[in-house]
Amino acid sequence: MFTLILKRMAIGFVTICAVSIIIFLGTKVLPGDAAQIRLGQEATPENLAALRERLGLDLPMWQQYWNWLNAFVHGDLGKSLAGDAPVNELIADRYKNTLIVSVLTAAVGVPISLILGITAAMFPGSSYDRVLTLVTVSLVAAPEFFTATLLVLIFVFWLGIGNAVVIGSIDGKSFWELIQHFALPIGVMCLIVASQLIRMTRAAVLNVMSSPYIEMAILKGLSRQRIILRHAVPNAVGPIVNIIALNLAYLVTGVIVVEIFFAYSGLATLIVQGVQTRDFVVVQAVGMLFCAAYVVLMLIADIAAILSNPRLRHPK
């Protein structure tokens, strides 16, 4: 099992390296480099060459990549092309919002989705199950900003609670105040996660329900509730942990749309601004952070799947 996990982690490491190459080369395909963008109109061949040398842009491509990666690993994300601000500072100002919303979404959304998914699996085909399926299927197919629009309409315009934009600082707020502060973004993100998570949890539990030992339990005359909670759910835990990690990884898209929709600053707004101003130092750095988070969550999903499989955990 350990070799399997080590192998999987090695693959994860290789993936992150490959991803870093894609991101690095992706921002290098066009003519025009950081030196030209910085100097703009004032560019003369001499000061261009001087700045290129200072920024290390005259080095061969692989060496530039190596320097960039080396600095990145050591926590130096470079300097923004617009305004010369260190990317580290830009990120330090904004990462909290993104992190808080993601963590709170996981804390609120995951347990609720699990409960809904498992209860749906307890009564398959009931009207409760069918309504839940209808809602989740619709939400899965709809764009994130549709979900956001829907929530704003219901809460802000119809019920008159909350605000369509997130304003104010988060400093010194308690856990409960933070949830209130980010209520709508968290609500949207929870719905995005829940729509997948409920369906997949339900499927995972129902999958276990079709195995012979459950049939045995039914024939023994156990109650449906006891069969699900005591017999089926423990064996579905592995797949469910896998599903949770997968869905948290999918949140990367959600968080970008939600930050723009509710107009608060975070890492996602930073990378979108970076793309708009073609500030590829910022795009590289933040893109790399998002992709690394994504790959790590995928890795956790895989390892959870290995750990939860008794056949892999105790090899013969």
Partner: peptide, 18 residues
């Protein structure tokens, strides 16, 4: 390698570049 990137990130990198 491409599949291990979130699709939206690929889109952002391409738009940033071209």
């Amino acid at each position: 390698a491409f599949l291990s990137l979130p699709t939206i990130m690929l889109g952002l990198v391409v738009v940033a570049a071209v």
